[in-house]
């Protein structure tokens, strides 16, 4: 149960050295593995366990998530823009599914 991630950035054309805020959200049930189906069987755990953000291939921010993170995980963070480039984000879940998003940043 996934869809296109939603990514917001405070400034798409920042100056070099500016600090920008990024909000990233992806649709995912984040099934904890604690719940039972009506038939009484445990619904297997499937959560996004890793979020990675890189700038032109270099990892700048990463997170390991556990079951206590809400469904449709929302992550907001800040980084200093080193120059024009591409911000790449990747989410991966327990089933090995990977969701990618990218954002072009131009410097003014």
């Amino acid at each position: 149960m996934t869809s296109k991630p939603r990514v917001w950035i405070s400034n798409r054309e920042p100056q070099v050295g500016d600090v920008v805020t990024v909000r990233a959200m992806v649709s995912h049930a984040m099934e904890t593995g604690f719940r039972k189906s009506p038939a009484g069987e445990i619904i297997p755990r499937n959560i996004i366990n890793r979020f990675e953000c890189s700038f032109d291939g270099q990892t700048i921010f990463a997170g390991d998530l556990d079951t206590a993170v809400s469904r449709n995980p929302f992550i907001e963070f800040k980084f200093k823009v080193p120059g024009a480039g591409q911000l790449q984000m990747a989410w991966s879940d327990d089933e090995g599914q990977r969701i990618d998003a990218a954002l072009e940043i131009a410097t003014s």
């Binding site: 921010f61 997170g63 390991d64 809400s70 929302f74 992550i75 963070f77 980084f79 200093k80």
Partner: peptide, 15 residues
Amino acid sequence: CRFTFSSMTEPDFTT
């Protein structure tokens, strides 16, 4: 959850 930072990231996040 656990987040790691680099020299480019401000240690400031919300989840």
